[in-house]
Computed example of a mutant assay.
Amino acid sequence: MKDLLGDDRTAMVKASKLLCDDKSTTPTLLRFLDAETRVDNRHAILYALTWHSHLAQWDLMVGILKDVREAPLVRGQAAEYLAYNFPKVRTDSVEFKVAVDALLEALKDPSPEMRYCAVHALGNTGHPPLLPALREMLQDTTPAPGWVGTVSSQASESMEWLESMHEQRRKQGP
């Protein structure tokens, strides 16, 4: 745990990956996140929380995503949390709508990394009405630093994923 709050990026990443599997650390990680201001440390904490998959953090993650004072790396990790947890949230819920609205707003972000992460998360919704927004992002050929490909290539992949997720949702219900 102490490595998450240190300055050694390698140790931070290793600790974050180890904590992904230990859901009992969620309360401690949330306390760390509340007090931590450094970007890399916040990202590492959010990474571990993402894999805990607690829907209780949904509103927190949406708030971080919407907070333009947060670094794109941190906001992108919040978008990744949403991406992995969208299958657990009903498409007709308030939580779903609020998250989707925040992601649609993030498509306009000046950071290509943020747009890339938003496109990725929207693809995980399994919600066909979002296809036009993803289709528009096919025009954005900006490379996303730290990611493989461009916003456009991720939009293309996300459109395919959205359709696949929609099939799963259709079989399981809303």
Score class of each variant (00 low, 15 high):
D34W: 06
D34N: 15
D34G: 06
A35Y: 06
A35L: 11
A35F: 08
E36Y: 06
E36L: 08
T37V: 09
R38V: 08
R38C: 04
V39E: 15
D40T: 04
N41A: 02
N41V: 00
R42H: 09
A44P: 08
L46M: 05
Y47A: 00
T50C: 10
T50D: 13
T50K: 10
H52P: 08
S53G: 14
H54F: 11
A56M: 01
Q57Y: 02
Q57G: 00
D59T: 12
L60E: 08
I64P: 05
L65P: 07
L65S: 06
K66Y: 01
D67T: 09
R69E: 14
E70D: 01
A71E: 14
P72I: 03
L73H: 09
L73W: 06
V74Q: 01
Q77E: 15
A79I: 04
Y81S: 10
A83G: 07
Y84A: 04
N85L: 03
F86K: 04
F86Q: 08
K88G: 06
V89K: 05
V89H: 02
R90A: 12
T91N: 07
T91G: 10
D92P: 02
S93Q: 00
V94N: 11
E95L: 13
F96V: 00
V98K: 13
V98L: 12
V98R: 15
A99D: 09
